[in-house]
Design a protein around this nucleic acid. Structure first.
Ligand SMILES: [Mn+2]
Ligand SMILES: [Mn+2]
Ligand SMILES: [Zn+2]
Ligand SMILES: [Zn+2]
Lengths: 142, 142
DNA sequence: AATTTATATTATAATCATTCTAAACTGTTG
DNA sequence: CAACAGTTTAGAATGATTATAATATAAATT
């Protein structure tokens, strides 16, 4: 639950001008109690439906990528035809519900620490991510 | 290291007609000692360079997807702009080298079993996949 | 082995998410 | 305010993937 002036500083501090488009997108993404997952399409629809002033799709793409580059968003890749962004930038894992196409954050009480015994020589680990795909219990759902 | 007649049976058994295009693709993908990772583009290039008869790109797409649907290939999604296929269809995890864009299989001596303590209620786990991104040790590589 | 039927291949066009372009606009700085 | 760099925008371009529909091939049937 951050407020406008905080977004202004946040953007300034990372070398991004606090334009009204970026502030609007900050509001949509970060002015919440809980983090969430979204696609570019979700975000564009959200903005189109909830605000009068429209933001061009190019700007939405630019902004989301800028925020990702600055570390304010993480990108979660599930399949070749769907890319999610995550406002939860802490290290965490995901369940992916194949029935609903929803991503769900894992807590530490759901997935234990991944034990990496040997890494590739000369390389540094930049992230470790677990994706648990889940689907309906029953075989023939109709 | 399977041979032609084995591919014919394999295809017939899964309801796919053993056409010469599919057999050629089987040969490229499965007539090897070791499993490997490839993109559609890699495969198309490989076929174009190593064989006289060309296979249309549409057929390459169709065949790779058919093989995936039949469980002869797995798809590994690394980023929104790159999709790999894997001829290793056993459960396993991956290292992804961000410097070279290469995928490397993990053995059990590299990543311990992932401990899933709580699953989503009413759902069955269909897969558990770990992706470890690695990159060069040094900060300023040139 | 010829005929029929179902399937597969192909060149090409269509789609669609994403990126590019370059002109207009805005935030910042002095 | 003037000057400049950075940003937004509509629309065009791109490029990977999928659709189309005509042709070819494999399998099944006579
Ligand atoms: Mn695919
Ligand atoms: Mn992206
Ligand atoms: Zn998340
Ligand atoms: Zn693999």
């Amino acid at each position: 639950m951050l407020k406008n002036s905080e977004f202004v500083s946040k953007l300034r501090n990372s070398g991004l001008r606090p334009t009204k488009q970026r502030l609007k997108i900050c509001e949509v993404l970060f002015n919440r109690d809980k983090t969430f997952h979204f696609t570019i399409n979700d975000l564009a629809k959200n903005i189109a439906e909830n605000f009068n002033e429209k933001i061009s799709l190019a700007t939405i793409y630019n902004t989301v990528h800028a925020f990702k580059d600055k570390g304010y968003l993480k990108e979660i890749t599930i399949s070749s035809d769907k890319s999610y962004f995550d406002t939860n930038i802490t290290k965490h894992h995901h369940f992916y519900d194949e029935d609903t196409n929803l991503l769900i954050d894992c807590n530490d009480n759901e997935i234990g620490k991944v034990n990496i015994k040997n890494n590739i020589t000369g390389k540094k680990i930049s992230s470790v991510e677990v994706l648990v795909r889940v689907a309906s219990d029953t075989q023939n759902q109709d």
